[in-house]
């Protein structure tokens, strides 16, 4: 679902990181992923949501992050699109 939502532009990488906050990433990602994110950002000179999601792919997000966080991202995108009346923060 996360991968499909990104491919179909249901939500953007910034929307993902609006729910998968740095605190969530820092507390749930394994150390090697944290290192790779920082290495990529240092190598590129910046840390953007797109670059973060290039390293932490949707598959890795689904594997390590709580599903409630990912579902909140999906539900919020659905609320923005007007599919549902439920507003998910």
């Amino acid at each position: 679902m996360m991968e499909s939502g990104l491919e179909n532009q249901i939500f953007q990488p910034g929307d993902v990181l609006a729910h998968a906050t740095p605190d969530v990433l820092a507390n749930h990602l394994p150390p090697d992923l944290l290192s790779r994110v920082l290495q990529a950002s240092l190598a590129a000179g910046s840390m953007t949501p797109e670059r973060v999601l290039e390293t932490v792919t949707p598959e890795l997000l689904a594997r390590h992050l709580p599903h409630e966080v990912l579902w909140a991202c999906i539900a919020a995108a659905a609320a923005r699109a007007g599919v549902t009346n439920t507003v998910v923060s």
Partner: peptide, 13 residues
Amino acid sequence: ARLFTACLGAPKV
């Protein structure tokens, strides 16, 4: 977490 927050908000890392 603090580092990620700073890196995401900074124009240059």
